[in-house]
Nucleic acid binder design. Structure first.
Lengths: 199, 199
DNA sequence: CGCACTTTTGAACGCTATCAATGCGTGTGG
DNA sequence: CCACACGCATTGATAGCGTTCAAAAGTGCG
């Protein structure tokens, strides 16, 4: 765990390798995965406003993180304006990304949400030069469901249906490692609402 | 409309009076209310990353907006570091706020979501020194539902139920203007419903 | 007044949650 | 080595919440 909700804010972090999940807990104890972080993403922006972190940052793998003291970072930005540009870009990107997930959750049915989740993950890998046709989800069904506003059973059922339709395939070792032979086919699935009720 | 999705990014804006809604449209035409803005909020952060706006900013009322050229703003920040602090705080606050709404939508049933929406609005007014026990929603039932991942009928039903329970009251002129005699009562109403769902 | 838009309310349907049983892989201890 | 517990995943049956479809009333405006 890189930081926990409530901890005093001192550093921002840049993820150089590995994967993180961001987890918020509400006052009444509801827990929620509110974001996923990949290589190059910044962590800790949530803490600037309140001077303490608003969520937990949990590594999903061995990870390498560059931690930067915020005050020193600002001084460095004064000397090197392009650094400030990078930081603003990262913050802006996070805002846009969060809105995209909000839209997915508000407007898509369960199966399309799961597909959008897979696409998101695949694209995140692809943009970073990693293979996007075969990867590990690194989240339990329960966590995926939580992130998407679904139950773990629904996630499991959708994935099974996608596998039955050969739009994805499971690794024979672990059902958390999946293959996406044709990302286009998945994409058109969301668009056209192809019915998978083959049974 | 202050700006539209796709427009080139030149200015950030600070809302000095009035109310704005932020509307995103996905590639396949799904429309989504992704945020609400009140006095003192900044608008336009979404455009920094992509150099063009990612959503529409629509006024819900006559509004006064201060528009600041981004490049000039950065120069001013170099001279006055506290200005940069304000801007970062606003961005960070937006990130935290977006996550809160995501959590509400993912973890709460319909009635609790509507209540959370009312609380959010009331608190936004209260923090700004405006009266929070009586205000106009400025959104149609359809827009509220869209923002909360519900249909307009569900929103209408929940509001009617809340009014029947005297937790809120409608203005006799317009059913978009509501009274909240006891905000605490509303809050405990959500708590009770959620704790039932938690086990 | 007519027209378009918004809101309310009812009834029926369907998607997703809930409840429950089973299987699988892993680590642990007898 | 096996038995066992534990966490994770799958699958089925059922129920319920929210959607969909539909009708009617209220509101604002040219």
């Amino acid at each position: 765990m890189l930081y926990r909700a409530g901890e005093a804010f001192t550093h921002l972090h840049v993820l150089n390798s590995g994967f993180f999940k961001m987890i918020s807990v509400s006052a009444d104890g509801r827990e929620q995965v509110v974001g996923l972080k990949f290589r190059g993403d910044w962590l800790g922006f949530d803490a600037i406003a309140g001077a303490s972190h608003a969520c937990d940052a949990v590594a999903m793998d061995t990870a390498e993180v560059w931690s930067l003291r915020y005050d020193e970072l600002l001084q460095a930005c004064a000397r090197r304006p392009e650094l400030l540009g990078l930081m603003h870009e990262a913050m802006s990107h996070e805002i846009v990304r969060d809105r995209d997930t909000l839209m997915s959750i508000c407007t898509l049915p369960a199966d399309a949400r799961v597909v959008a989740f897979l696409q998101h993950w695949a694209q995140a890998l692809s943009v970073r030069g990693l293979r996007a046709d075969q990867f590990s989800l690194r989240l339990t069904r329960a966590e995926i469901g939580n992130y998407l506003g679904l139950t773990l059973e629904t996630v499991s059922r959708v994935l099974s249906r996608l596998a039955r339709a050969s739009l994805i395939a499971f690794n024979e070792k672990s059902r958390r490692d999946i293959c996406i032979p044709d990302l286009q086919a998945l994409e058109s699935f969301v668009q056209g609402r192809v019915s998978l009720n083959l049974h």
